[in-house]
Design a protein around this nucleic acid. Structure first.
Lengths: 230, 230
DNA sequence: AAAAATCGGTAGCTATGGCTACCTAAAGTG
DNA sequence: CACTTTAGGTAGCCATAGCTACCGATTTTT
């Protein structure tokens, strides 16, 4: 196994607290497959047969849901070491519930899910840790989705923006910060149209609550921003 | 341990494929606590300290999210044998991400989460199965939340209703069926106002797509319903 | 059985926000 | 360096859906 790949894997949450030597033994057991995908191609397509637990080794990919009408919602953007398809691995379902889209050239390792809960319990020492990691990962995933539901359930545009900005403010601990999402992506994330988002941001600027230029934002009136979040 | 409680537990997904005798040994190990809650009281309150993995032994409870503005969103309704708080059990978070509300008199068993991944690996035989069950449960939960995100991300009222009814149709395999939710609950689930929901249902009836009375629905024109879902 | 609470449909009013269109600035690309 | 593409702000139009109010029907409580 390529030393570079091992380096990514040991830093990946699924192999957390598993030593490179243990990992080496486990990989023999887990029987992984590595594929490469070019920019703007689909790594996995919603509705198609499940191809296993994915680990992104290099590149950047987006997990997206597309409604029948064609509108896309970005769930998350993942980078090297991140997983995808961990939800389906242990469920009865056998097809992708969302698409995975390569935003740059990507290389991906797939693990057959049966192997993780498989028979090699005695052989692999890191097995117990792997299971523990999976439990933590799935919990975290579920909680993230929960948070997403929270955002989507918010009705008002002003409210959505305010809550989002307050969260970013909390993360950065500064009045001025750079958003991790471009307007388009933010609009998708909050499930609103980009133009309406820009309009409301403009209004909030006119009211002296915030200043912004592209993805950088400055909070001028925290109290008013809080009021906007109700 | 009460025989009735054991009966509920062995039917609960968390103890699936664990025999009553194994269960008995495990319960000694897991150190559960049982509480009773009266109708319309809170079993757990969003934001308050986590009290452990909950198993509903009797009664009916609703998992609800309440936004700052006070609007409530029903996540699910659970019955005897169902779990709650399984997401937080293995995550770093230590407070409830949602509230659990007793819709009738409820009795609840709480398991300290440390115990599940705990040290008693060698002692308890059902331990491995328990872990497996937890993985399946968490996967299923995450997938359910995923589906919820799907619904919330849908913009149009007609689209939401159509997709919901088509799903119910698929479940029941009949043109006439009874919805599992009352209007209020359905409105909450789809995150729309009850009145707007009723109005749109009325329109769909006027267009000859459906008929309905209270929670019973009959699909008169499946093709048109499908078109409404885009 | 009467009273109270819940459930659900309808109507009118209005604000929110989606959509189209357009324009400028920035960033890639050959 | 010119050209294309992407990102983002602005404006006007208008349909969607939220809100209030009300009323009748049904269920629950006393």
């Amino acid at each position: 196994m390529d030393a570079n790949v091992v380096k990514i894997l040991v830093s990946s949450p699924i192999f957390r607290d598993i030593s490179p030597s243990q990992l080496d033994i486990m990989l023999d057991c887990l029987n992984p497959k590595i594929n490469t995908y070019s920019k703007n191609s689909y790594i996995a397509v919603e509705g198609e047969p499940y191809t296993g637990l994915g680990i992104l080794l290099s590149g950047e990919a987006a997990i997206i849901k597309e409604s029948a009408s064609g509108s896309r919602v970005i769930m998350t953007v993942i980078g090297p070491g991140d997983l995808f398809g961990e939800m389906i691995a242990f469920s009865p379902r056998k097809h992708w519930p969302a698409s995975v889209f390569a935003q740059g050239t990507c290389s991906v390792m797939f693990l057959p899910p049966e192997k993780i809960i498989g028979e090699c319990t005695q052989v692999c020492g890191g097995y117990k840790q792997l299971i523990k990691n999976m439990l933590v990962l799935l919990s975290t995933k579920a909680l993230m989705l929960n948070q997403r539901v929270e955002y989507l359930a918010i009705r008002g545009m002003r409210e959505k923006i305010s809550i989002y900005l307050l969260e970013q403010y909390k993360i950065n601990q500064k009045n001025t910060f750079v958003l991790p999402l471009k307007r388009n992506e933010l609009a998708d994330f909050l499930s609103v149209s980009r133009t309406a988002l820009s309009r409301e941001l403009g209004r909030m600027r006119d009211e002296g609550i915030i200043e912004f230029y592209r993805t950088s934002v400055k909070i001028n009136n925290l109290a008013m921003l809080r009021r906007g979040a109700e």
